[in-house]
């Protein structure tokens, strides 16, 4: 069983984000990076499937040189090898998926997992587009994965607390919902082993021009002005409670 996990490297969750001087992306100076959280759940699911069915877990990431830190982190958690699609550009989802598809076409994967969306662009479609480009069936927002020889049975999350089980043949692409498993930490042994694991660097072909061009990145305009209470915690809390009692009348 050959499982590929597509991960994205995104700014750390608590990063303070400002538009770049160009206005076309965020200012990347002083940003720390991490594996996009839903992709971390996809990686964990792949590792658990390998524990059950045997085989190999390969992690692929498109991004600049720093993306190798995230690949190394995935290797430390237990992935067997990595593929780094090296690109410095901020790509749209079709461009990213095209590069990933090109890099993966000869891998003859049985299953490709990725997170349901990225925390930065948030388009929520790279996995589905990758499936379309590779002509694999796909299913999204997956909460459970079962494999029986060459058939896949997955639990897809619907809205308002509904679910649906779906069967499809392998190979397939699934986008994974956060929370379907419990994330593991890298062990010291894992970190040590990761240093000698292979990362294949792929130089992608230049992408076709984007048809969804980011022209401007900016702070959202405040539409509703919340009354903000400042000062020390005690003063702010007292002021808030007074407002809740006498203005909003909800206490």
């Amino acid at each position: 069983m050959k499982i590929i996990v597509a991960i994205k490297q995104v700014p750390q969750r608590d990063s303070s984000l400002r538009p770049a001087a160009s206005g076309l992306w965020v200012d990347e100076a002083n940003l720390g990076y991490e594996i996009n959280e839903p992709d971390a759940y996809a990686l964990e699911e792949a590792l658990q499937l390998r524990e059950k069915h045997g085989g190999e877990v390969i992690v692929v990431c498109a991004g600049p040189e720093r993306a190798q830190q995230s690949i190394r982190e995935a290797l430390a958690k237990g992935a067997d090898r990595g593929i780094h699609v090296e690109t410095d550009a901020v790509l749209d989802t079709l461009q990213t998926a095209t590069m990933l598809a090109d890099a993966l076409r000869d891998e003859t994967a049985d299953l490709i997992l990725t997170g349901l969306q990225s925390d930065d662009l948030g388009y929520g479609q790279t996995g589905v587009v990758l499936a379309e480009l590779l002509d694999f069936p796909s299913s999204t927002i997956i909460m459970q994965v079962e494999i029986d020889v060459d058939t896949l049975r997955v639990r897809r999350e619907l809205e308002d607390g509904w679910f649906q089980n779906i069967e499809m043949p392998l190979p397939a692409v699934l986008t994974i919902q956060s929370g379907l498993n419990k994330l593991r930490y890298a062990t010291l042994m894992g970190i040590k082993k990761a240093k000698s694991k292979e990362i294949r660097v792929v130089q992608p072909a230049a992408p076709a021009a984007s048809t969804a061009v980011i022209e401007k990145v900016y702070a959202p305009q405040k539409s509703k002005q919340a009354q903000i209470f400042t000062g020390d915690a005690k003063t702010a809390a007292t002021q808030l409670v007074e407002k809740l009692k006498f203005e909003a009348r909800v206490l």
Binding site: L94, Y123, Q125, V128, E132, I141, R156, E159, T211, A212
Partner: peptide
Amino acid sequence: YQTRDWAPKLATRFRKVLISD
């Protein structure tokens, strides 16, 4: 959720991004 499951496939057939959300 349903749109997210298939509309990106449709857009890809026209070599477009689904400009989502």
